[in-house]
Amino acid sequence: MTPFAGAIACLILVTLCYSAVCAVSPFTACRKCAGFGATQPGRFRRHPQPCRRCYGSGRRLRLGRRLHNHSLRAAEGARRLRDDARH
């Protein structure tokens, strides 16, 4: 196997593994609040505030799952346009 083919095979394997992880566990801990749902109080704040990125849930969709959901919505929109054009 040439080095190029080996690199392609490795890339395909990594992509398939990441796709499996996104299918099994679509959510991950928020990086900003570390999964706690609230940011640490700042210098002038006394109480922790809900995290803006995860809206206080502490969970975020993985990038691969967001891309998958976006592609599903785009395909559904195209399907609707095609069906509307037929009628």
Rank of each mutant, 00 (worst) to 15 (best):
M1F: 10
T2G: 15
T2M: 04
P3A: 13
P3T: 14
F4C: 02
A5S: 06
G6K: 09
G6T: 03
I8C: 11
I8H: 13
I8N: 01
A9T: 06
A9Y: 01
A9I: 13
A9Q: 12
C10F: 11
C10R: 13
C10H: 10
L11Q: 01
L11H: 10
I12Y: 00
I12L: 14
I12N: 08
V14P: 00
V14S: 08
T15K: 10
T15R: 09
L16Y: 01
L16M: 01
L16I: 05
Y18D: 14
S19E: 01
S19Y: 05
A20P: 00
C22M: 00
C22K: 01
C22Q: 02
V24Y: 14
V24N: 03
S25D: 08
S25V: 05
P26A: 07
P26R: 02
P26Q: 06
F27Q: 12
T28N: 11
A29L: 10
A29C: 12
A29E: 04
C30P: 07
C30Q: 06
A34G: 09
A34D: 12
A34L: 09
A34F: 03
A34P: 02
G35F: 03
F36R: 13
F36P: 00
G37D: 01
G37M: 00
A38P: 01
A38G: 10
T39F: 02
T39M: 08
Q40M: 15
Q40E: 15
P41Q: 01
P41W: 04
P41E: 02
G42Q: 10
G42K: 11
G42A: 08
R43C: 02
R43W: 06
R43M: 09
F44H: 07
F44T: 07
R45D: 13
R45V: 00
R45Y: 04
R46C: 06
R46I: 14
H47N: 06
H47T: 05
H47Y: 04
P48E: 04
Q49Y: 08
Q49C: 11
P50G: 00
P50N: 11
C51T: 06
R52K: 15
R52F: 08
R53A: 00
R53F: 00
R53M: 03
R53Y: 01
C54R: 01
C54K: 01
Y55L: 09
G56S: 05
S57L: 07
S57H: 06
G58N: 00
G58Y: 03
G58H: 04
R59F: 13
R59E: 10
R59S: 15
R60I: 14
R60P: 00
R60V: 15
L61N: 07
R62L: 08
R62Q: 15
L63N: 07
L63D: 11
G64T: 09
R66Y: 13
L67V: 07
L67S: 13
H68N: 02
H68M: 10
N69S: 11
N69M: 12
H70C: 03
H70G: 04
S71F: 07
L72M: 07
L72S: 05
R73C: 15
A75D: 08
A75Q: 10
E76I: 06
E76G: 03
G77P: 02
A78T: 02
A78C: 12
R79M: 07
R79G: 01
R80D: 08
R80K: 11
L81G: 14
L81F: 04
L81P: 00
L81Q: 09
L81D: 08
R82Y: 12
R82K: 12
D83Q: 15
D83I: 05
D83S: 14
D84V: 08
D84L: 13
A85Q: 07
A85L: 14
A85M: 09
